[in-house]
Structure formats: C-alpha cells, structure tokens
Amino acid sequence: MSYSKKVIDHYSNPRNMGSFDKGDDEVGTGIVGAPECGDVMKLQLKISGGVIEDARFKTFGCGSAIASSSLATEWVKGKTIDEAFEIKNTEIVTELNLPPVKIHCSVLAEDAIKAAIADYKKKNNEG
C-alpha cells in the first residue's frame, strides 16, 4: 500500500503540531484512540466567542492518522463550533485519498474534533 501525495505532504510537513495549555478555559482537548492499532491522537481547539481561532494536534500513529489530524486542524480553524462539529470523516477520506484499511484514521480525527468540542463545552458549562 502506498500513501497518497496529500498524506505524504501532511506527514512530512504536519500543520499545527504541538499543544496548548490543557488548563486554559479557552482550550478544548480531545484525546482519542483506535483500539485496533493503538494509535492515539490529541487534538486541541482554542475557542473564542464560539469560533475556533487556532488548533493543535499530536498523534502517535501511522502516516494516515497523522495526516488526518493535521488536515483536521487546518479545516477547523475559523469555523464555528457548530460548523466544526459537522466535519465528517468521509470528507477527510476523500481529501486524503485514504484506502479502506485506513478509514479508521479519519474516524479518529472526526472523533477527536468532537471530543475536543465536548471538553470545551464541559469546561464552560455549555454541555
């Protein structure tokens, strides 16, 4: 199996890699994992006035998992919480040209966004 050009691009030049302070009220943190392969992904959103201002990720896993989370951080920036919540893993699959065996990596990224939003809402009593 070979990775698509876009996966390789994200893998070699990951966007928004790193972390924010977990304790910051403006930061929502989502940590999710894929049971089958043990890949783990942390995605953080910096939210102000209902809009995602910035995002960071860190992923321990395969190229597709890294690329999916890297892409997710690019996509969520500038979106409202509600818009970001609507991002579907299938969009990530299409954009990155992921093969069937790697679809779970895109699911991971979608779950991470949702988990980060849930964490933010919980922190700010919006849940």
Partner: peptide, 8 residues
C-alpha cells in the same frame, strides 16, 4: 478505550 489518555 478508558486508557487512551494514559497511553497518549
């Protein structure tokens, strides 16, 4: 599943 934070 409950260990993902620790695993990370």
């Amino acid at each position: 599943a409950e260990l993902f934070e620790d695993i990370f």
